[in-house]
């Protein structure tokens, strides 16, 4: 992804849930690692205000999409780990379908080519 793109606030918010679910589908993780992973995968473009991730995680926990357990970090600190539940996996699949539709619709318009086209054409 090209650097220097500012992703609109709404889009960041909307993509939060599927991203968290998708990363957790790779295996158990915790808040800080999740943020690092998103940063890495997006090439540094998607940067969340770190603290905002936690209310999102708590909402997913309340809705039964993820489950949390307290463990220890390597340094021996208390750390809260999250893992995906079956319901969460279903939700992820559902979200993937939704994003696919949005993505395909956008592709079908001139939107994508227009946006990604080099300047001057």
């Amino acid at each position: 992804m090209p650097p220097g793109i500012d992703i609109a606030k709404d889009l960041v918010a909307a993509s939060g849930t599927p991203l968290v679910l998708a990363i957790l589908s790779e295996g158990e993780s915790y808040g800080y690692a999740l943020i690092k992973r998103v940063e890495k995968l997006s090439g540094g473009v998607l940067q969340w205000t770190d603290g905002m991730l936690y209310p999102v995680l708590h909402r997913l926990e309340r809705n039964g999409l993820v489950e949390a357990s307290w463990g220890k970090s390597q340094a021996g600190r208390r750390r809260k780990y999250y893992h995906l539940t079956d319901k969460g996996a279903e939700e992820l699949a559902d979200q993937q379908r939704q994003w696919k539709v949005v993505n395909e619709t956008l592709r079908a318009t001139r939107f994508t080519s227009f946006r990604l086209a080099p300047k001057g054409i």
Binding site: Y30, G51, Y54, H58, S73, R77, R78, K80
Partner: peptide, 16 residues
């Protein structure tokens, strides 16, 4: 208090 623990873990990881 539990949220504070969680956020503290985050803060310390970041600091490290």
């Amino acid at each position: 208090a539990k949220d504070v623990d969680e956020l503290e873990d985050h803060l310390r990881s970041q600091v490290t």
